[in-house]
Simulated assay, not measured.
Amino acid sequence: MKKVLLIHNPTAGDAAHDKKALTGELKNAGYEAAYFSTKTSWKEIPRDVELTVIAGGDGTVRKAVVNLIEEKHEVLKKPFAILPLGTANNIATTLGICGNTREIIASWESAKEMPFHLSSLESGHEMHCLLEGAGCGVFPFHIQNMIKNPMEDGLGTQERMQVDLQRLLKSISVYKPDYCELLVDGLDHSGKYLLIEALNIKCVGTNLFLSPAGDPFDDKLDLVLMKETDKEKFANYVYSKIMGKELTLDIEPIPASRVSFRCEHNLYHVDDELIKNKDNSLLHVRAARKTVSFLVTERPTFAKAMVG
């Protein structure tokens, strides 16, 4: 049997995705799984594996990759595979990973390793690794509101998606765009913004497809900029998702290697986490700082955005 490392968020998914069920599915497919819970010390991870399987949502994928990089762990030389068990699963969606657990595991037999470029955000003397995106404006404002007023327990995936979208719509309506100093590959784009988002993948948040062409296999960021005049457009897009539709934003991202910014609100995020910028210094996002490999059945297509 091929030996794999299974990194599992035990709070993700349901009983069909607990330790016993996941290790059983892997065994049936010919994999011997060394189980590791995200609640355990990362120093206890075994080294002699051929594949690292991450079972959880986007937060679990980020936590696993970042912690293994910090530990300079041997498993980084081997590819990652994702069993998406979270709410949004933006990383898996970007990589074209879909289906039930059994189907995804079966697909690994013919899957290929693809280099996934990790970007970084520098805040003072701190360095943050990003897989999804980083920025300022209404997104970190919304994340802050969700932290202050968490969802009630027991909600299903679709219910959580709906609550998050409805609260995001509220955040968009009340957020006041502020002045942001912004440099894109050295060119000045400063002004008042509703949202500044440097993307590593095509969707963030609650499956918000801000950059349908966002390709983690290239060496560029996709910078999405929205000004106050875009507030109604963005609100309509979020409302369409609440109603079960999928419009496409007619906002063309800017390809960039380096994005530097700071805003008057001094509120920023990396992926789904808020970050501190105590002296409100200029933050720097750089593309393709590190590379890890993910298994994909075929190279996903990243079509250019079309007006919906």
Score class of each variant (00 low, 15 high):
Gly186Gln: 07
Leu225Asn: 02
Lys77Gly: 11
Leu247Tyr: 01
Asp185Thr: 08
Glu159Trp: 00
Trp108Gly: 09
Asn207Ile: 13
Ile201Pro: 01
Met243Glu: 00
Tyr35Leu: 09
Ala134Thr: 12
Ser190Trp: 03
Phe116Asn: 04
Asn280Ala: 10
Ile172Arg: 03
Lys19Glu: 12
Asn67Phe: 05
Lys202Ser: 12
Thr301Phe: 06
Pro177Val: 10
Lys78Arg: 14
Lys176Asn: 07
Leu131Phe: 05
Val61Pro: 03
Val285Asp: 00
Thr101Glu: 04
Glu122Cys: 11
Leu5Asp: 00
Ala12Tyr: 01
Asp279Phe: 10
Ile54His: 03
Val204Cys: 12
Met226Thr: 06
Ala15Lys: 13
Ile69His: 08
His125Arg: 13
Ser281Val: 15
Phe261Gln: 05
Arg299Thr: 11
Ile254Cys: 10
Leu225Asp: 01
Thr94Glu: 00
Val61Lys: 06
Glu246Trp: 00
Lys148Trp: 02
Phe302Gln: 04
Gly133Asn: 13
Glu44Gln: 14
Tyr31Phe: 13
Thr11Asn: 12
Val75Thr: 11
Ser171Trp: 01
Thr87Arg: 08
His17Thr: 15
Val270Ser: 07
Pro10Tyr: 03
Pro140Gln: 06
Val163Pro: 00
Ala15Thr: 12
Gly57Asp: 03
Met161Ser: 04
Met127Ile: 15
Leu130Cys: 09
Cys180Asp: 02
Lys278Pro: 11
Met243Cys: 00
Gln144Ser: 14
Phe217His: 11
Val66Cys: 14
Lys227Met: 11
Glu109Thr: 11
Glu74Thr: 14
Ser211Gly: 06
Glu71Trp: 01
Arg102Gly: 08
Val174Asn: 02
Lys227Arg: 11
Pro79Cys: 08
Ala92Gln: 05
Asp164Trp: 00
Phe80Glu: 02
His265Gln: 13
His269Tyr: 03
Leu208Pro: 02
Cys98Val: 15
Ala16His: 14
Val224Phe: 07
Lys276Gly: 10
Lys278Ser: 15
Lys202Ala: 10
Thr157Gln: 10
Ala55Val: 13
Val75Leu: 05
Val75Phe: 02
Glu246Ile: 09
Leu183Ala: 09
Asp188Met: 08
Val66Leu: 10
Ala134Leu: 08
Phe234Thr: 03
Glu152Leu: 15
Asn207His: 12
Leu208Asp: 01
Leu249Thr: 09
Lys233Tyr: 03
Ile143Thr: 04
Asn236Ile: 05
Arg289Gln: 15
Glu264Ile: 14
Asp279Tyr: 10
Met151Gln: 09
Arg289Asn: 12
Phe217Glu: 06
Ile82Glu: 00
Gly308Asn: 14
Ala92Trp: 00
Gly244Glu: 00
Ala106Gly: 08
Asp164Gln: 10
Gly13Thr: 05
Leu221Pro: 04
Pro79Glu: 01
Asp230Gln: 10
Leu225Cys: 06
His73Asn: 05
Leu194Pro: 06
Ser281Asp: 14
Asp279Gln: 13
Ala213Lys: 12
Trp108Phe: 05
Ile196Arg: 04
Lys39Ala: 15
Pro150Ser: 09
Glu25Met: 13
Leu6Asn: 05
Asp230Met: 08
Phe141Ala: 13
Gly86Ala: 09
Glu70Trp: 07
Gly214Gln: 08
Arg47Ile: 13
Leu51Thr: 05
Phe209Val: 14
Lys39Trp: 02
Asp215Pro: 07
Val238His: 00
Lys112Thr: 10
